[in-house]
Amino acid sequence: MKGTENFKSIIANHLQSVADRDPLFAKSYSKESKNIDECINYILSEVQKSKCNGFADDEIFNMAIHYYDEDDIKNIKATTVRVVVNHSSETNQSNSVVEKQKEVPVRKLKQQVKIQPEVNIGKQVSLFDFPGV
Rank of each mutant, 00 (worst) to 15 (best):
residue 1 M to K: 15
residue 1 M to D: 12
residue 3 G to A: 05
residue 4 T to W: 00
residue 6 N to W: 00
residue 9 S to P: 01
residue 10 I to K: 11
residue 10 I to L: 12
residue 11 I to G: 06
residue 11 I to H: 03
residue 11 I to D: 01
residue 15 L to K: 12
residue 16 Q to I: 14
residue 18 V to D: 01
residue 22 D to Y: 06
residue 22 D to W: 01
residue 22 D to C: 06
residue 25 F to E: 03
residue 25 F to D: 08
residue 26 A to C: 09
residue 26 A to H: 13
residue 26 A to W: 09
residue 27 K to C: 04
residue 27 K to M: 08
residue 28 S to L: 00
residue 28 S to T: 10
residue 29 Y to I: 11
residue 30 S to L: 14
residue 32 E to A: 07
residue 33 S to W: 00
residue 35 N to D: 15
residue 35 N to R: 09
residue 36 I to E: 02
residue 36 I to P: 03
residue 42 Y to N: 13
residue 44 L to Y: 07
residue 45 S to D: 14
residue 47 V to T: 09
residue 49 K to L: 15
residue 50 S to K: 03
residue 51 K to V: 13
residue 53 N to D: 15
residue 54 G to L: 11
residue 56 A to N: 09
residue 56 A to I: 09
residue 58 D to H: 08
residue 58 D to L: 10
residue 61 F to C: 02
residue 61 F to D: 03
residue 66 H to I: 04
residue 69 D to M: 04
residue 71 D to G: 14
residue 75 N to P: 00
residue 78 A to W: 03
residue 79 T to P: 01
residue 83 V to Q: 10
residue 83 V to S: 06
residue 84 V to T: 12
residue 84 V to M: 03
residue 84 V to L: 09
residue 85 V to L: 13
residue 87 H to G: 06
residue 92 N to E: 07
residue 93 Q to I: 07
residue 94 S to K: 08
residue 95 N to Y: 03
residue 95 N to L: 00
residue 96 S to E: 12
residue 98 V to R: 12
residue 98 V to M: 05
residue 100 K to Q: 14
residue 108 K to M: 03
residue 112 Q to N: 06
residue 113 V to H: 01
residue 117 P to S: 11
residue 118 E to Y: 06
residue 121 I to E: 09
residue 133 V to E: 01
